[in-house]
């Protein structure tokens, strides 16, 4: 073998070694990633099952409560837990774990609360732009929306069929959610005081503002909050 041939064969051997090393390292990394993914799904699964358990516990106990006032309090807590459950059910369903789909959530929670209200004379109009926000903000937004919808449903006059309009807008750097209805009750009048302080705490957490206006065709509430345009992963 000439010196030149030997050099070429050494080079080929070194290249093959390097490729084998890279392949082994890639396989290790892939294995580690797969294990992390399995773990993530396991944690997700446990969070969801625990939320289910919490809802079932509250419901089981509230069925045994005779005092209507205490039962109403339990129902409000159940609604809040259900709002959080709806967030978690929707998170992780998409491939992008870091983004929360606000319009999909609005549809789910509105249909739930409307069923719970027993008001089949009310119609809900959804008018949404595609709007994703970082998952970290999802729970706080969900709890505020829950309070706003319960308030709107409570204000809808029982005497006439009503209409509830929900709108989501997502201009750059911002999320806006509007709830308006053709009820005639003064905005804020029927607020349960815990619900009101919950909203005030959560709007502070989100640096959000809530504006209430009495449009001609009924009261309107508008939540606006700053949102990072690229959800941090």
């Amino acid at each position: 073998m000439t010196a030149r041939n030997r050099a070429a064969s050494d080079l080929a051997a070194a290249k093959a070694d390097a490729e084998a090393l890279v392949a082994a390292r890639t396989a290790d990394l892939q294995k580690a990633l797969d294990q992390k993914t399995v773990l993530l799904h396991e944690v997700d699964h446990r969070v969801k099952n625990n939320l289910q358990l919490i809802s079932s516990l509250i419901l089981l106990q509230s069925r045994r409560i005779a005092d209507p006032e205490i039962r109403d309090t339990m129902t409000s807590m159940l609604n809040r837990v259900s709002a959080l459950a709806t967030v978690h059910r929707n998170l992780f369903q998409a491939d992008d774990l870091s983004a929360f789909d606000v319009p999909a959530f609005m549809r789910d929670i509105a249909s739930d609360l409307l069923d719970a209200s027993g008001r089949d004379d009310l119609s809900v109009e959804h008018d949404h732009e595609p709007a994703a926000i970082p998952a970290q903000q999802a729970s706080a937004v969900a709890l505020i929306v829950n309070e706003l919808l319960i308030e709107a449903l409570a204000c809808a006059p029982e005497s006439a069929p009503g209409r509830l309009r929900l709108a989501v807008r997502r201009p750059d750097g911002e999320l806006a959610i509007e709830v308006d209805h053709d009820g005639s009750v003064e905005p804020g009048q029927s607020r349960e005081s815990f619900g009101a302080s919950l909203m005030s705490l959560l709007t502070r957490q989100l640096s959000a503002t809530i504006e209430r206006s009495g449009a001609d065709d009924g009261p309107r509430v508008r939540l606006t909050m700053p949102v990072a345009d690229r959800p941090a992963s």
């Binding site: 969801k48 099952n49 939320l51 289910q52 809802s55 419901l59 159940l78 259900s82 459950a85 709806t86 978690h88 059910r89 369903q93 789910d108 249909s111 739930d112 609360l113 069923d115 719970a116």
Partner: peptide, 12 residues
């Protein structure tokens, strides 16, 4: 029906 379902989701 996806868990965690809500009371009204399961009822429906």
């Amino acid at each position: 029906v996806a868990k965690p379902y809500t009371e009204w989701g399961m009822r429906g």
